[in-house]
């Protein structure tokens, strides 16, 4: 699928991350062999980007935008409540900008976006994740 692509490493890593929810050591070795790179080179790339994880996390993930525009709309005050709602069941991740800056605070679950969140709606988003 990626054969013949120019600079194919990033698309490959995205595909592996999507399929296995992580890019682990075994995957790094296999990719390195296929692309004629060292494992160190592949690991360097995997560890550089926020989107790739070394091990899978079975928990659902909720990304909450913590950038300036959402801060200006009060996201930081919602965080203690969000953490309480998440507990150990949901993984909360900070994301720097979902591009919904005029309607924050904003969150993303999978490919679904939520905007204009307040304490109550954010807790609902987290509980339903």
């Amino acid at each position: 699928m990626h054969a013949g692509r120019e600079g194919p490493l990033l698309p490959i890593l995205h595909a592996v991350q999507a399929e296995f929810a992580c890019v682990d050591e075994a995957a790094e070795k296999a990719i390195a062999k296929a692309l004629n790179l060292t494992r160190a080179e592949v690991h360097g790339v995997v560890s550089f980007y926020h989107d790739f994880r070394a091990e899978p996390d079975p928990r659902p993930t909720v990304q909450i935008c913590r950038a300036e525009a959402c801060q200006a709309r009060g996201v930081e005050a919602l965080m203690p409540g969000a953490e309480a709602a998440a507990g150990d069941r949901v993984r909360l991740e900070a994301v720097y900008c979902l591009g919904l800056c005029s309607a924050g605070p904003a969150a993303r679950v999978g490919d679904t976006l939520h905007a204009r969140l307040d304490a109550e709606t954010l807790a609902t988003v987290i509980e339903q994740a």
């Binding site: 692509r5 990033l10 698309p11 995205h14 550089f48 980007y49 926020h50 989107d51 790739f52």
Partner: peptide, 8 residues
Amino acid sequence: ELRVGAGA
């Protein structure tokens, strides 16, 4: 070709 970034 569309390429997708990885959060950097």
